[in-house]
Design a protein around this nucleic acid. Structure first.
Length: 815
RNA sequence: GGGGCGGUGGCGAAACGGCAGACGCAGCGGACUUAAAAUCCGCCGGGGUAACCCCCGUGUGGGUUCGAAUCCCACCCGCCCUACCA
């Protein structure tokens, strides 16, 4: 009689033993192959969500698999600890953000420990620790030195009632109101710090050195949004130059008006007296919306005439200058030439305001008799130029290049590239973040805080009165300092850094979180870097995953690393949905809590179910009944591990069958874990379990084959369900620890089937199945198929026209 | 509007262009039990048939192929991301 499986007891016992014996200590071992497995670090919200488990448990299984396959694996964990929720908690519940955050981290560490993952906690990094943000500040300074950080005016959303700057997610609804008091939000211009991500726009488009999912590469490519075309300079009647960017210089002759962004600096100057009032009113209305609202598609075009005219440089025609909010100041030069005949937006605008539409690209097959265009013709490939002077008749394909060349020769334009990617605004008017290490001196302007004075510490005694500015501004001890150059009274920068900044380099801090003479210990770096396998959610495709690539490229300029990409491979898991198939949310009441699952089933069962229930990159709805499958698996494994096997009358074929199955499953699980196909790996182990249980009942297998199968099953389970595997390994008298054992190897000859089912088709329909010896040649298979009684009945007297043989598998007779 | 991901039994899902539905959940029948739970054995896409078997079947319609869930084209539906980028 074996004792019953008690996951709670087994799991806590082994977790203690692992910690005591330092089983998951991860150290540099020169000469041994390394594998840096990284999973995205959590925000310390205070409660570990099933989504965290879904991200981390399979990542842990993969890291353990790599370890058993001979790699020295680094698998660290930490916390992205700065951010808005802590500050909100402070305002709402009068808890200091630091207290709230560190209490949450404490709780989440315990929750994480229950997962039984192989994290090396000695390498834990917390972005809110001064020892961490000291280096975030140091990086800010380095970026400034390299010209990759700069300061300029930029707008923030501001609630006049709460008197506070709002984050994007705090602005709600189409009318853009404050989430708390419903007051309409206004824009406020502030001096803010930016990182010049656009410097690397071109390089960021190159993914040739990294193995990342296609969809992430596509999303980043679209996000960076490279467009080629030409910069062309128009002039107003008064002679003021207006630069524009166009992807279609070949349509210049069709430019019948210009549109400036409402905030374009020239608007003030060119607007005529008669139009001033209208223009002013429009500009003020536009200011209330921000780009997000303005860019809402399908919105009807709006705009007003400035009263001014420009000269089209290619044909000297006078064209009116309008302002409209569909032109964005932040892209290109904030001004466009409008070619209504060949741009959908311009067509809509021209139609609404009755502006001329001049066709300059003739679509194939179209003639003058077809009348005016009813929609913009936008093809870049087909058609030819008309109404374009010397270029009449030029085929559209290649016209952009020819016109650009000519513009360059004329001196009225030049080839240009534009990107949608914007520089990264990192200033936050918040308390709970890393202070930007800058001092403003009346004489020397912004001066970086000397390295010796880093970190610029966040003061603890801060009032959380909502104001438009960082609470740091009202902390006299923080605010007032002296200039590092001339020592005269100066003020500190009171904004803090975007938390994405802190999480852009955390993979480097993990290497040596205590190291205090550089962001990371170069001895660790040279061994572990770069990250071999990154895992995490797809939602970070365009923000975090671009920022961290940017950071690594900048670190290359700093001489800190000698590579350009932070993560060589990336895999994105899907999402666990509620049982109803919807996203989990407290309001829907469909949230699955891992802690209670662990209490009820044990961590191993939860881990196995999370890996089993869906393809990992797909995710899907949680199901409380479904977890019974993996639960039964582990109960069965428990019994198999304890069962003192007694061979009875050994039957050679049954014995052989179990041995074959064992090796087939080793092969399958090995391939599946390598490819993140956790669900089919667990399914394969279930098949081995099924066969073992049959063997147990019958007693028809030899003890050697039985032992080989049980040991293999435990080794294959070790990455997936580490506690029960360790327990049973010990029960079976094997040396500690199972996690240090070499991965089982399969023997292809043993895994090979002696017989195969030959499928016989007639015209693609299965008509017979014949068990045949494996490895017969094509001619033999063909002959066997044709001799089949069923085939003869189906064919009758007909002669087959053709016979296709698929090696060792299938014969298709074409009649 | 653009981009991405997906649509396979009652459900979650498997399936190098080659036996559709591995594995699991639920269900049904049986065994054990006073009974239930647990466990064990069997069945489990739809239709036809006494049965052997046959026909149909991977969102819809076409195409390529000896052969298509898989490749190509068009469309429908769902989810996610993005949003007038000149």
């Amino acid at each position: 009689m074996t004792e019953n499986y008690n996951p709670a007891e087994v799991e806590s016992r082994w977790q203690s033993r692992w910690a005591e014996s330092g089983l998951y200590r991860q150290e540099v071992e020169a000469g041994r192959p390394k594998h840096y497995a990284l999973t995205m670090l959590p925000y310390p919200s205070g409660d570990l969500h099933i989504g965290h488990w879904y991200a981390m448990a399979p990542s842990d299984a993969r890291a353990r698999f790599k370890r058993m396959n001979g790699c020295n694996v680094l698998f660290p964990m930490g916390f992205d600890a700065f951010g808005l929720p802590a500050e909100n908690a402070a305002i709402e519940r009068s808890i200091h953000p630091a207290k709230w955050t560190y209490a949450n981290i404490e709780k989440m560490r315990t929750q994480l420990a229950s997962m039984g993952a192989m994290f090396d906690w000695r390498r834990e990094a917390v972005s809110a620790d001064p020892s961490y943000y000291r280096w975030s500040q140091w990086f800010f300074k380095k970026l400034l030195e390299l010209g990759l950080a700069y300061r300029k005016q930029a707008a923030v959303d501001f609630c006049p009632h709460c008197n506070t700057t709002l984050a994007r997610e705090q602005v709600w609804g189409d009318d853009r109101h404050c989430e708390r008091c419903l007051t309409p939000v206004i824009k406020k211009e502030l001096e803010q710090w930016f990182f010049r991500t656009t410097t690397y726009a071109e390089e960021l488009l190159d993914f040739s050195d990294i193995d990342w999912p296609e969809r992430v590469k596509i999303m980043q490519t679209n996000w960076i949004g490279r467009s080629t075309g030409a910069d062309v300079v128009f002039h107003t009647e008064a002679g003021d130059p207006i630069a524009i960017f166009t992807t279609r210089p070949d349509t210049l002759w069709g430019a019948t008006f210009m549109v400036l962004a409402p905030e374009h600096p020239l608007v003030e100057k060119i607007t005529t007296a008669g139009q001033r009032e209208t223009v002013e009113a429009y500009r003020q209305a536009a200011e209330r919306l921000d780009e997000i609202a303005r860019e809402t598609a399908d919105r009807e075009k709006t705009g007003v005439f400035t009263g001014a005219y420009a000269i089209n440089p290619v044909n000297s025609e006078l064209i009116p200058i309008w302002i409209a909010d569909y032109v964005l100041m932040s892209y290109g030069s904030g001004a466009i030439m409008a070619v209504p005949a060949h741009d959908e937006r311009d067509f809509e605008f021209a139609t609404k305001f009755d502006l001329p539409i001049v066709e300059v690209i003739r679509a194939p097959g179209r003639t003058d008799e077809d009348g005016p265009l009813t929609e913009a013709y936008v093809s870049k490939a087909e058609g030819h130029m008309v109404n374009s002077g010397r270029f009449d008749g030029t085929p559209t394909d290649g016209a952009v290049e020819r016109v650009t060349e000519w513009l360059e020769a004329q001196g009225s334009g030049k080839a240009a590239v534009n990107y949608r990617l914007r520089d990264w605004l990192i200033s936050r008017q918040r308390y709970w973040g890393a202070p930007i290490p800058i001092i403003y001196c009346p004489d020397h302007g912004p001066v970086p805080v000397p390295d010796a004075d880093l970190p610029v510490m966040l003061p603890e005694d801060v009032e959380f009165v909502p104001t438009g500015e960082s609470p740091l501004r009202f902390h006299d001890g923080f605010l007032h300092t002296t200039c590092p150059i001339c020592d005269q009274p100066s003020l500190r920068e009171t904004d803090t850094m975007d938390t994405f900044m802190c999480s852009s380099w955390y993979q480097y801090r993990y290497l040596s979180p205590e190291f205090d003479s550089a962001p990371f210990d170069p001895d660790e770096g040279v061994y572990w870097l770069p990250v071999d396998q990154y895992t995490g959610g797809i939602e970070h495709a365009t923000m975090h995953l671009i920022y961290t690539r940017f950071f690594t490229k900048a670190m290359r300029e700093m001489g800190l690393v000698d590579f350009s990409e932070p993560m060589l491979a990336l895999y994105n898991q899907g999402m666990v949905l509620g049982e109803d198939g919807d996203k989990m949310s407290k309001s829907k009441g469909n949230v699955v809590a891992p802690d209670s699952l662990v209490r009820k089933y044990g961590a191993d069962t939860v881990r196995a179910y999370l890996m089993f229930f869906a393809k990992w990159d797909q995710g899907g709805p949680w199901n409380y009944d479904g977890i019974k499958g993996p639960q039964r698996l582990l109960y069965d494994v428990w019994d198999l591990g304890h069962h003192p096997y007694q061979a009875g009358a050994v039957a050679a074929t049954v014995d052989r069958a179990l041995r074959r199955k064992t090796h087939q499953v080793i092969r399958k699980v090995t391939e599946d874990l390598e490819n993140f196909s956790f669900n089919t790996a667990v399914a394969a182990i279930m098949e081995l379990r099924n066969q073992l249980m049959g063997a147990q009942r019958s007693g028809q297998v030899s003890e050697a084959v039985w032992n080989e199968a049980v040991d293999a099953m435990l080794l294959l389970l070790a990455p997936i369900t580490p506690h029960i595997a360790e327990e049973l390994w010990q029960v079976r008298g094997k040396p500690y620890s199972i996690h240090q054992q070499p991965w089982p190897q399969w023997d292809a000859a043993v895994a090979k089937e002696e017989t195969v089912t030959l499928v016989v088709q007639i015209n693609g329909k299965v008509r017979d199945r014949i068990e045949v010896t494996a490895g017969l040649d094509d001619e033999t298979l063909k002959a066997m198929a044709l001799e089949s009684e069923k085939v003869r009945n189906w064919l009758g007297s007909e002669e087959p026209r053709k016979v296709i043989v698929v090696r060792g598998k299938l014969v298709n007779i074409v009649a």
